[in-house]
Design a protein around this nucleic acid. Structure first.
Lengths: 334, 334
DNA sequence: TTGTACGCGTTATCAT
DNA sequence: ATGATAACGCGTACAA
């Protein structure tokens, strides 16, 4: 059996209370301190976190819930979170909501029942009520990437509106008017934000929008592929296309290759995420790059603060800047 | 405060023992069963896993340790593991060893101290002694992707030797003799296995190997890039190159683009992992594709079996087949 | 500063 | 089948 605090106390000739106090950084006489340290070393004693948790109601565990694990965006964020929180002795457990609100709720219930100290979640939809339902005031939650309705939470977001504005504006200044967009779902926050950036440019430049150039996918390779074909096979195809996430970018590129569309001569193209990819492809792709690891870091910082009971300026919304990287996939029409 | 088993017992008018037995599926009289169920519903009682764990020494938590989290290979495997194990009520916590043996050992110690029920690990080197040191017989461990020295563990591997053989043999039958390989580190199992596949072809076909065409990288984009340049800038460059993981493939492709090398006219090329990429690039890439999710699934299966105390045919080595996918990046020299 | 003793919420043992 | 009670290993009043 593992050695316990009792064994240490016995060997050191002190009471368990004293050992416990020593372990938790309270004052202990120098003499006892040495005896305890010696006993701990002798017995190779290690605290039992389970027993401690039972008393303290702290599990030293945080969870991160994402709609998909095998996803570049998710994993970079998770790495950022783990990197930040392991320093404080936290374990991070990962949960896959599979883009399903019911499953998301089930996961949250599971987590709460398991006494995680905090949760960072990328919600799979606009709905936030079920999150509030489950966690109430019991455990701190910070959202990432997306905001939800009907609920106040700390959140780490990306400034989608302005970076998309920047990208679309670039196309407009190069003479493009018929600009297709393959966007995320209407019921996801980032989808709406990226749409807003797109619309603002047209409004500011007084260009009418052809709504038939606006397509909604679901952030998967398949829809990127299908929607690009739809756009380019229409009677009046766009002169430029903007795709709003990594996997749809891949899908769209596959369609472009298959249709033998020349970039940028026949079509200007702006993708999303994954800088390495943009450099790999010829011509190099113009892309919007998100600060993924930073999202994780930032979310972890806020969560840690809340876990320690610091409730300053709740709800705290951090909005990180994304970057528009120029490439050879864009052509001037002038 | 959360309601406990005591509250349930009180409301149902039975003892805590009876409630506990009910909760754990032992026989309880029909009458009491109904009363208990009613009380549980009334009080919205939920078992406290911490208290249970303290008694049972089971945390219902498994850990997966990888050299890098933000990595296509890692995340697909983790998704496979989580998918399999959540069904049984297990949480999976993720650990990043950062490719560092010391850190790897520290993580293992942390995990053991935290009473995880099992560990699946992608070791960051050949060394296995520190794993044995830490976990001893206490907690089941299954390796994935790589075997280690001086230690017996269950493992889920990929048949690297034969799939690499297949790829290289293809090049040989197309007339290639000077075949470069950008391989993983010498002290990593997969690196050696892929090397073995390469060498076997040359041995079987009685072709001498030019050792200057063999390069060792560290599975990063940077080394893929640098080593491809090294190969192609040498006095006698290869007519074909094979790269042995995804990130080095990306790096090598970037170098190829930069040097304006025409694929497959000036160089035949075989990459690794990530089928989508191979379809995206023109000409389409020939690649070796690993069954990532299946590795995770399989590792999870074995681990679960061990957790339940089933020690059949230990150590169990599962060797999954990878697939060589032809592409337009290979040219016949005849 | 230290020791004692109780409690955290379960499970397991023992009678009954 | 059930109830009473002792663990599990730790933290923490309380008293000294």
């Amino acid at each position: 059996m593992a050695t316990t605090i009792k064994d240490v106390a016995a060997m050191a000739g002190v009471s368990v209370g004293t050992v416990s106090r020593y372990l938790n950084g309270y004052n202990v006489s120098e003499k006892n301190k040495l005896k305890i340290e010696e006993a701990i070393k002798q017995l190779d004693f290690q605290i039992n976190p389970l027993a401690r948790s039972l008393k303290t109601n702290k599990s030293m565990t945080v969870a991160v819930v994402v709609p998909e694990l095998a996803n570049i965006f998710s994993m970079n964020i998770i790495e950022g979170i783990e990197h930040k929180l392991e320093k404080y002795g936290y374990s991070v457990i990962v949960c896959n909501s599979e883009g399903n609100v019911k499953k998301e709720k089930a996961k949250l219930e599971f987590l709460k029942r398991n006494y995680v100290d905090g949760i960072v979640i990328m919600p799979c939809s606009d709905q936030g009520a079920h999150i509030t339902d489950v966690v109430k005031e019991d455990v701190p939650v910070v959202l990432m990437d997306r905001l939800v309705n009907d609920a106040n939470f700390d959140a780490v977001l990306v400034d989608n509106v302005n970076v998309v504005y920047q990208a679309i504006e670039r196309l407009v200044t190069l003479g493009h008017r018929r600009i297709g967009i393959i966007n995320g779902p209407k019921n996801v926050y980032t989808g709406r934000e990226r749409m807003e950036g797109y619309r603002r440019v047209f409004a500011d430049y007084k260009i009418p929008i052809d709504e038939s150039l606006i397509k909604y996918g679901d952030y998967t390779e398949e829809t990127g592929y299908a929607l690009l074909k739809e756009l380019m096979q229409s009677p009046a195809p766009p002169t430029a296309v903007f795709v709003t996430n990594y996997y749809m970018t891949i899908g769209a590129m596959m369609a472009i290759n298959e249709m033998n569309i020349q970039i940028p001569d026949q079509l200007s193209f702006i993708g999303f995420d994954q800088l390495e990819l943009s450099k790999l492809i010829k011509p190099s792709l113009a892309v919007i790059v998100q600060p993924m690891a930073e999202i994780g870091n930032s979310a972890a910082d806020i969560l840690y603060k809340r876990i320690r009971g610091n409730g300053d300026n709740f709800p705290q919304i951090v909005r990180l800047k994304a970057q528009f990287v120029e490439g050879e996939s864009i052509k001037s029409l002038y």
